[in-house]
């Protein structure tokens, strides 16, 4: 049964469509109050309230693994420059939701947008 080519095609198509569906669904999840957290080596080193940003600004995160320049605007955040060789984190551009974090693997830096903790309380009130 598992030896037939048709079975394999069905298994892979279902898996591909499920994961694509998952990804699209994750993209559509909306966060109202955005808190950006910058992690280095799993430790949160900086927290920014993206809803409280009025003027765009830049700052540099420097760790023993390398430098990343982060740009912050209202409701979104990105890495504009990095000392890593592949620059995938820079090319990823802006993130404005909790779907996928910006990950700079060489510098072990992760930028994630999270909900504010008391959001649930605010909704149930």
């Amino acid at each position: 049964m598992i030896k037939s080519t048709k079975t394999w095609i069905i298994i892979f198509s279902v898996l591909a469509l499920t994961s694509l569906g998952c990804w699209i669904w994750m993209q559509s999840v909306h966060i109202d109050h955005k808190i950006a957290k910058i992690y280095h080596n799993g430790e949160c080193i900086k927290t920014i309230d993206l809803n409280a940003v009025s003027e765009p600004y830049e700052f540099t995160v420097e760790t023993e693994h390398g430098k990343n320049t982060v740009r912050v605007e209202f409701g979104r955040i990105r890495i504009v420059d990095a000392s890593c060789p592949d620059h995938i984190c820079v090319n990823q551009g802006w993130i404005s939701d909790g779907t996928a974090p910006i990950v700079c693997l060489p510098n072990k830096l992760v930028i994630k947008i999270e909900k504010q903790e008391n959001e649930l309380d605010a909704k149930t009130q």
């Binding site: 994961s19 694509l20 992690y39 080596n41 779907t99 974090p101 990950v103 072990k108 992760v110 994630k112």
Partner: peptide, 27 residues
């Protein structure tokens, strides 16, 4: 490995898109 090295379980958010791209490039 990424989750272990960066100690950030959030990188598993990439699992669906990497599964999808893995299937396409794998074919």
């Amino acid at each position: 490995t990424a989750a272990v090295l960066t100690r950030t379980p959030a990188v598993f958010a990439y699992l669906p898109i990497l599964l999808f791209s893995g299937i396409i490039t794998g074919v």
